[in-house]
Structure formats: structure tokens, C-alpha cells
């Protein structure tokens, strides 16, 4: 008998084989299960083409925050990731690209100095070598343990986008669930083209904070990717199965 997975959204039982074939999207209600970084890389890149770069960038504890290093260690064990972002060179259906994949599994995908540095260096490398950059976002916002240094990553990453713009090198953003806070208020909203997965939470302030301000229930579908598209902040919602083809099309059409 084959294994089944229960969808947390519609509670239907999904056959495991079908589940994997659909890239972890529920066939009944289109609920998108979270992909691991490696699964995202496999989804987008040509087989064996991804080579990790900027591995010399290390996390530090700039405020000497007590317990932060232990927390990082725990997160590494739990998530099997070094940090909340992986950067690399790759090919997408034959086209060269630089790819950053953020992961919510590592400290909620929060942006500290390492995340800001890797994303910035990737964008600058793209600007320098005329290589398109793709960033798959997933983040709860700033890495609070790094205090003001985490805030400064917003300026740093956004300044790199300005340089990409000036060099005429395209930046493509793929918003995935969830993308909020300082990541939304920096590079995530600065792509030449902004794609999103269906049903992802995309916003600046968290829903609970907004609910606290307005004192009533938030409207249905508030801050979803569909909401962002209707309000003009997302270009297209793309199915996982079409993501590599779409990115390849965008790369080919942005060669100037």
C-alpha cells in the first residue's frame, strides 16, 4: 500500500507518488507545501548545474547577543542548513543565471548580515558579469538578534539592485510563503519581474500586527500573492511545474 500525506488546508489524503510528482502541491486545493532549499534548487536548475558560491561569508554575532550562537547551532542541526540563504551559479534550461534561495526553515528566513551579504554579493556579481539574478524569497523579516546590523541589510541589498539597474542586468524575484518585513521592504519588491507562488503570505507588517491596529478581523485573502497581484505588486503567479520554463523565458527576453 502506498503512503499518503494529509493536506493541512483541505485535509484530503494525497497519494505520496502523486504528491512528489506535483512538486508538493495539493492536487485537490492547490495548497503549496514548503519546499526545502535543495528541492527548490532541483525544481529550477538544470540537473547538476548548481554550484554554491560565496561560502566564505560567515555568520557573526555583531551585538554579542547572549544565546545567539547556540540558537544558530540548534537551527543548523534542525534544518540541515548552514544559514537562511544559499547562493550559487546555475543553468536554467541552458541559460546561465545566479540563484539565491532563502529558507524559512532556518530562523524563519530572517535577514541578518550573512543573508544580506550573500544576496548583495550575488547581485553585484550578476551586475559585473551580465548574469541574470533570481532570488527565491522566504522570510519573516529582520534577524532581531543582529539588531541594527540586520536593518542595514535592507539598504545594502537595495543599493545592489540600483547597481544592477544601472548595469542593465535583470533581477527576477520569486516570492514564496511567507515573505514579510524587511525582505518585502527591500529587494523582494525591487525585481524587474516579480513572480509568486499561489497562496503565499506576502506583506510588510505581519497580519497579527495589522489586526492589532485595526481591531477587527482581516478581510479574506488579505496579503496573499493573489491580493498582491490584484494591487499591482506582483507580475504573475506561476505554478511550480512551470517555474523553470518561465524563468528561462524571462532570461531570454531580457538580453537587451
Amino acid at each position: 500500500m502506498s503512503k499518503t500525506i494529509q493536506c493541512p488546508s483541505c485535509h484530503e489524503e494525497i497519494n505520496e507518488e502523486e504528491f512528489l510528482k506535483s512538486n508538493k502541491v495539493c492536487p485537490f486545493c492547490n495548497y503549496h507545501f514548503r519546499l526545502k532549499s535543495q528541492e527548490r534548487i532541483d525544481l529550477i536548475c538544470d540537473e547538476g548545474s548548481f554550484k554554491e558560491v560565496f561560502t566564505n561569508i560567515k555568520t557573526s554575532n555583531p551585538l554579542n547577543m547572549e544565546g545567539y550562537e547556540e540558537k544558530l547551532e540548534q537551527q543548523r542541526e534542525k534544518s540541515d542548513l548552514e544559514e537562511a540563504v544559499i547562493a550559487g551559479e546555475c543553468k536554467i534550461k541552458g541559460e546561465d543565471a545566479l540563484l539565491c534561495v532563502m529558507s524559512f526553515d532556518f530562523m524563519g528566513g530572517s535577514m541578518g548580515a550573512l543573508v544580506g551579504e550573500k544576496i548583495t554579493e550575488t547581485m553585484l556579481q550578476g551586475a559585473l558579469t551580465d548574469t541574470p539574478v533570481i532570488i527565491c524569497t522566504a522570510s519573516g523579516g529582520a534577524r532581531m538578534q543582529e539588531g541594527i546590523f540586520s536593518l542595514m541589510q535592507m539598504a545594502k541589498t537595495s543599493s545592489a539592485v540600483s547597481l544592477m539597474n544601472k548595469c542593465g542586468v535583470p533581477l527576477f524575484i520569486v516570492l514564496t510563503h511567507p515573505t514579510t518585513g524587511g525582505v518585502t521592504a527591500s529587494f523582494a519588491m525591487l525585481g524587474d519581474v516579480i513572480l509568486s507562488e499561489s497562496g503565499a503570505l506576502i506583506g510588510f507588517a505581519g497580519p497579527r500586527v495589522i489586526q492589532g491596529t485595526i481591531g477587527e478581523k482581516l478581510p479574506d485573502g488579505f496579503q496573499t500573492s493573489e491580493f498582491q497581484k490584484e494591487h499591482g505588486f506582483v507580475d504573475a503567479i506561476v505554478d511550480r511545474k512551470d517555474l523553470a520554463t518561465t524563468l528561462n523565458y524571462l532570461i531570454r527576453t531580457h538580453k537587451g
Binding site: M154, A185, S186, A188, F233
Partner: peptide, 22 residues
């Protein structure tokens, strides 16, 4: 920045991001 419905509907994230870039 103001955390509210109108703020999100009109893209507070995009507005701040664009200022940082420019």
C-alpha cells in the same frame, strides 16, 4: 511605517524598498 490595510493595499513594502534603492 503604518501597519494597516490601506498601507498594505498601496504597497508599503514597495514604497520603502524603492526609497532605499533610489
Amino acid at each position: 511605517a503604518f501597519p494597516g490595510l490601506g498601507s498594505e493595499e498601496r504597497g508599503i513594502g514597495e514604497a520603502i524598498a524603492t526609497n532605499l534603492k533610489e
